[in-house]
Design a binder for these strands. Structure first.
Length: 726
DNA sequence: AAATGTGGAATTTTT
DNA sequence: TTCCACATTT
């Protein structure tokens, strides 16, 4: 019964799956069967009787990953995986806090704030304490709060360097008071609360430590300091931690991910007699050889890797292609051309991805695709549960569940408009602040005079009526009732372009329905859901923001950032905008380890491709309303020339080939009489490689402006500067 | 309370 | 350029 499970695993995968009970670090390269190893490991533990479902805890970062793990696991094992804890860090922490809310010092119905709610709360705190939001930008405080919490620091533990940061820490403390008063928690708070709860409460900690003898973590390189501490705390003296990750795919340092956790792991989880076992999965089952060669060559330029080299038993496949476009428009046109050819060769557009470093780059490509009538889908942007109409509906639901939620109160007290203006709300907020109570309480206790007071009373009556009416209803019916009774539906019906919002509200009712169906069917939090469906649904809405777009009917070309592509794979991949300043991004240069993270990002991009890979760059690009001339990315040079087939003159040296693919405008062409032209790559004996971005003067006065890769932008007199075509 | 104007910023992002 | 938040007007 074990052997079919282990069939067709390669020796390293087999070793990882069947490791004896001890902590292990699995260095799993891109496309090396990481998820398979993780799920098979669990199935093997169950099959051999080494673990019961109750003793397994599996942690992921995204809901998608945790769903995939559950799905794949249920195929691999006959055992009912209900009872196993599989989820995201935040989901699991939420579960623990719901179960032990009293010990954690939280109200029973505490609500989870998403990032938007958090920012709104910060702004409210500012207003209540007359804090200047010019001097202290709310977003900056938000970053400080989240950064501190993710490092495990409360306000009294944050070090202040100067007057400014001292004030900021004060604001952090005020924010915490507000959270506590309103019974709301932000994302990092879920982690930190749980961590503090477990460190404080010995019997609780021991309970979980005894229970979870097997802890498995996916994407370990993405853990932050707090998550690592959390794992360390939860792993009792006898737990085996199975950490799977890839240091070369660490691309989230900017949001606190700490690759060093991988190094610390060996030190922290080795016991006196059993060292942490390290296994490398280097055989890649995704890409053809040439693609892997390029990826390996690129990532070799990084220092301080744990060290890994992907290989495949597959064919070399097609060469990696590169293309230098004169402009971003031409780059897009090139993509459209190639995609047309691929589709004719029966490659599904859904199997083709256009990757870029930043979202702003999608526009030009979208435009070209639109004009070519090619279906495409852009990932990223507004998520379902983040949409205004959805948040409004959820706010009504939150008030029904817990009326002291000021954030929810303010969001809908005058939406749809019912004549409660800013001035009456300010009075109300002043009173609440003075009495340290919620807006709801203040409004109930002291009727506000005038028309607004009447509306306010009507609003409270409305919410109370909702509560009564939905008392005995199921979740979906509750949502449906609230959507109607709140007047949201009516409001959008009378709006000219409200149809999409109405559809979304309908979709929210559907979401509630499938949420209940899911909970009844199986997995995880079922008990809590039965206990209090509404609170569970609200937590679900906060923790799982949903898809950005409904899936489209016909297959569409995939457009997304490189970050969003992590974990995915495609037949063909275009890595676009490979230009200095864009990819690697200029902002990364000033960050510690910034360039190396950009390189890892490029590595992730390349390793998404199974069969065909295009690397493109544009010599000029419209950015922030300004035409910019960029030098080709150093990453292009870091892939050895022999591995790349250039479909254009390398780095777009169009001067050497006047009949080339360039399409310069007349104004630019008119300027050239010197043998040099704008957009041309040049080499300077001292400044190195660059690109001509402007020119002026004639004859002996002629000067050109060059953007050097390493030396910035300089004006050079052609008569004296020793410029060479590069 | 909607409509219009203005200024400023514009990697990457999950929970 | 384009998007957003915020302020001012109508």
């Amino acid at each position: 019964m074990v052997s079919p499970l282990l069939e067709s695993l390669n020796p390293e995968q087999l070793a990882a799956v069947t490791l004896p009970h001890a902590s292990a670090l699995i260095l799993a390269g891109a496309g090396s069967g990481k998820t398979r190893v993780l799920t098979t490991r669990i199935a093997w533990l169950l099959a051999t009787g080494q673990a019961s479902p109750l003793s397994v805890l599996a942690v992921t970062f995204t809901n998608k990953a945790s769903r995939e793990m559950s799905t794949r696991l249920s195929v691999l094992t006959p055992v009912n995986i209900r009872g196993m804890w599989i989820g995201t860090f935040h989901g699991l922490c939420n579960r623990m806090l719901r179960a032990h809310y009293r010990e954690a010092g939280l109200p029973k119905l505490f609500q989870i704030m998403d990032t938007q709610d958090q920012l709104a709360l910060i702004k409210r705190v500012y207003k209540a304490h007359n804090i200047d939001d010019e001097r202290f930008p709310p977003r900056q405080l938000q970053a400080l709060i989240n950064g501190s919490k993710e490092a495990g620091l409360r306000p009294n533990q944050v070090e202040a360097f100067d007057e400014f940061s001292r004030r900021q820490v004060e604001h952090y403390a005020l924010y915490e008071q507000a959270c506590q008063r309103e019974g709301v928690v932000d994302f990092p708070e879920l982690l930190l609360r749980t961590y503090e709860l477990l460190s404080r409460d010995d019997s609780l900690r021991q309970h979980y430590q005894r229970r979870f003898s097997h802890i498995l973590i996916d994407e370990f390189q993405d853990t932050n300091v707090l998550q690592y501490k959390w794992l360390k705390l939860l792993a009792g003296p006898h737990a085996a931690i199975f950490a799977v990750g890839d240091d070369d795919q660490s691309i989230y340092a900017f949001r606190g991910a700490n690759v060093a956790n991988m190094q610390h792991f060996e030190r922290d989880f080795s016991t006196a007699d059993v060292p942490v076992k390290l296994i490398k999965l280097e055989q890649n089952y995704r890409s053809h050889g040439h693609i892997l060669d390029a990826a390996n060559a690129l990532i070799k330029h990084n220092q301080g890797r744990l060290g890994k080299n992907l290989w495949t038993s597959d064919a070399h496949g097609e060469p990696v292609r590169a293309y230098a476009a004169p402009s971003d428009l031409d780059e897009a046109a090139f993509i459209v051309d190639v995609v047309k050819g691929l589709v004719e060769d029966n490659v599904s557009p859904a199997e083709i991805a256009v990757l870029y470093r930043s979202n702003a780059q999608s526009r030009v490509v979208e435009h070209a695709l639109f004009n070519a009538a090619m279906p495409y889908r852009v990932y990223g942007g507004m998520r379902f549960f983040e949409r205004a109409e959805i948040k409004h509906a959820l706010a009504y639901l939150r008030l029904v569940a817990a009326p002291d939620d000021d954030g929810a109160f303010l969001r809908v007290v005058n939406f749809p408009p019912r004549g409660i203006g800013a001035r009456s709300l300010e009075t109300l907020q002043g009173l609440a602040q003075a009495q340290g109570s919620s807006l709801w309480q203040v409004a109930s206790a002291r009727p506000v005079s005038g028309k607004a007071g009447v509306s306010l009373a009507a609003f409270q009556k409305l919410v109370e009526a909702m509560k009564t009416a939905t008392q005995d209803l199921g979740l979906a019916e509750t949502v449906e009732h609230v959507v109607h009774a709140s007047g949201l539906l009516g409001h959008y019906q009378s709006e000219k372009d409200g149809q999409e919002r109405i559809d979304n509200l309908q979709e929210l009712i559907n979401a509630a329905q499938s949420f209940m169906r899911e909970a009844e069917r199986e997995v995880g939090a079922a008990d809590e859901v039965v206990d209090d469906p509404l609170t569970s649904f609200l937590s679900h809405a906060a923790l799982e923001a949903g898809e950005t777009q409904a899936a489209e009917g016909r297959p569409a070309l995939q457009l997304m950032t490189v970050h969003a592509a992590k974990g995915l794979e495609f037949h063909t991949v275009f890595v676009t905008g490979l230009e200095e300043g864009l990819f690697p991004h200029e902002n990364s240069m000033s960050e510690l380890d910034g360039l190396e993270e950009e390189r890892r990002l490029a590595y992730v991009a390349i390793t998404r491709a199974r069969r065909r890979l295009y690397l493109t760059h544009a010599q000029s690009r419209m950015l922030h309303g300004q035409l910019r001339y960029n030098v080709a990315s150093r990453f292009l040079d870091e892939v050895p020339a022999g591995m790349v087939q250039w479909l254009s003159p390398k780095h777009g040296d169009f001067a050497a080939e006047p009949e080339g693919l360039g399409r310069y405008n007349a104004a630019e062409n008119a300027r050239e009489d010197s043998g040099w032209r704008i957009g041309q790559s040049v080499k300077h004996s001292r400044f190195g490689l660059g690109i001509i971005i402007d020119a002026e003067g004639r004859g002996t006065d002629a000067r050109v402006q060059v953007n050097f890769r390493d030396g910035g932008v300089k004006w050079l007199a052609l008569e004296y500067a020793k410029l060479q075509p590069a």
